[in-house]
Nucleic acid binder design. Structure first.
Lengths: 284, 284
DNA sequence: AAATTTCATTCATAAATAATGAATAAATAA
DNA sequence: TTATTTATTCATTATTTATGAATGAAATTT
């Protein structure tokens, strides 16, 4: 049983005859006869009553017709939803925690208002993981920090993010790694986080060997910084949303270290209308 | 796009690879590759991301997989419901008005209790029309009066029905057509009704030429008989259910005219489990 | 580091399936 | 009666699909 068999059967049932169905299908009648007989053979059921060179749909035929209509309609939907140029289906988006609250909410809300028929599937993860997921097709789009050039990825720059080093109030001003001990304690997300790596690179560049404590929540991380547990690197924009700023000191970095470029990435060659629309939303 | 294509695709998506899918499907890997490529070509969408000799399902692939699952499940249902030996689907039953109230209700109710998953589609019509509908596949089963042998029909006798002639109270006793005028007025269903034809045949056999008034409702017909408008032929069993018996006279016929055989008919070669079950119900 | 295994793909060929057109037979319409 | 319509059969052609050997690239084992 194939879709084309069901299509032929549907047409015969609808037209009430082989000849008319054949005409509609641009086939020769003998071919239509053969396909009906093939179906009847396979299902072990007569789909039509043959009476005086006429066909009347049988009970079994009726039953099959119900299914055939549903199946063919679904197959049609599948084709249209895959080939159409209107956003549809599910859009899976990932982003760093760092931009979750500050940068993602608005475009997400606007996109959903404009395309309510698209189901959104959003999650946050560190940059490195997001890139892997995009490459493996587990995510359609991701907002990540400073992605490297990759022939497999499409990349568009969305905004610049100023990063600052934060410490407790009691800490001296930090303008270079020299202002820290040789083995400073660093609070950061896991090793696939771009900001954490930027911070450790900055320290290594200044001959420091950091000890890293992995904390996968900015809320917790800033509490720990406030308590003097160590330093961290976070977007300046993020600090507005957190209530610890009184007990936290913010240190501006030299410009070559301060600016992180946040980009939208996707797997090249796998674009679809939903992705295009969201991308447009972000860049507008 | 064919069902077998979707089946192959589904298996590849599920197994996460060409080789394993091919094994499950008892096909050779190159064939599986070819079918996936055919689908991708037809839909103009890459269904998998090829990365280091591995396949990862793409966004489009996910979308198609959703549809494929639905479509294949429906196709499976179709096959099972057509080939299974348990009553299912829709059962279309017709019967004469004459037996509607008296003989059909109980088995119908019992059948529905025993097989609630079968949707019943019942209607009443005169015997002649019922036979036509069964022959044309518009009805699965029908209860009709005295069907003629027909190689296309399956026929089982269900019960005998005693027919009586009814007239108004004031009419003289009727034991043969001679007790009536030469042109008696007859009240009957339409010309495809077996009982009406039996009455007119009985009259013609006795040299009467009846004038027929067509009334397609026993209720109305008996009211008219009570009012002295003419005579009619009805099952004796039917009279118990009508409130006019006081003003109606009942005339017993000679045995060769009195007994009508009610039979269940169906189109030969188009039996199915629902029909078998209902037939069993009736004969039990 | 080398050898082996795993995996998807390509390609030429074989096998299976489907489509065609002419012929037939039965029923209906002119 | 004679056309016409209809479904079907059958032989032939065309198309599609399946196979197996070969390739190349990556992962795993030795």
């Amino acid at each position: 049983m194939e879709l084309s068999d069901l299509q032929v059967f549907q047409q015969v049932a609808q037209c009430g005859g082989i000849t008319r169905a054949a005409e509609k299908l641009n086939r020769v009648p003998s071919n239509v006869t053969a396909r009906i007989q093939k179906l009847e053979e396979e299902l072990q059921q007569l789909l039509f009553i043959r009476e005086k060179n006429r066909l009347y749909i049988s009970s079994a035929g009726h039953q099959l017709l119900d299914y055939a209509n549903q199946i063919l309609s679904l197959a049609d939907q599948a084709k249209h939803s895959l080939q159409g140029d209107k956003p549809n289906g599910t859009l899976r988006i990932g982003y760093m925690d760092a931009v979750a609250a500050t940068r993602v909410v608005r475009p997400l809300k606007q996109f959903h208002e404009q395309f309510p028929e698209v189901s959104l599937n959003v999650r946050s993860a560190p940059t490195g993981l997001l890139i892997e997921h995009v490459l493996e097709g587990k995510l359609d789009l991701a907002l990540v920090a400073d992605p490297e050039q990759d022939t497999r990825l499409g990349i568009t720059h969305i905004f610049d993010e100023e990063l600052v080093v934060v410490s407790s109030r009691r800490h001296q001003t930090i303008s270079s790694p020299n202002d820290l001990s040789a083995n400073p304690t660093v609070l950061g997300f896991n090793y696939k986080c771009a900001y954490r790596n930027r911070l450790t690179n900055w320290l290594k560049h200044g001959q420091c060997v950091p000890k890293v404590i992995e904390i996968n929540s900015y809320h917790t991380m800033l509490s720990c910084v406030a308590a003097g547990m160590g330093i961290a690197m976070v977007p300046r924009a993020l600090l507005n949303d957190y209530p610890f700023t009184d007990s936290i000191q913010c240190h501006t970095l030299a410009s070559e270290w301060a600016v992180s470029r946040t980009a939208l990435i996707w797997r090249k060659g796998f674009e679809n209308p939903s992705m295009d629309a969201f991308s447009k939303q972000l860049t507008a």
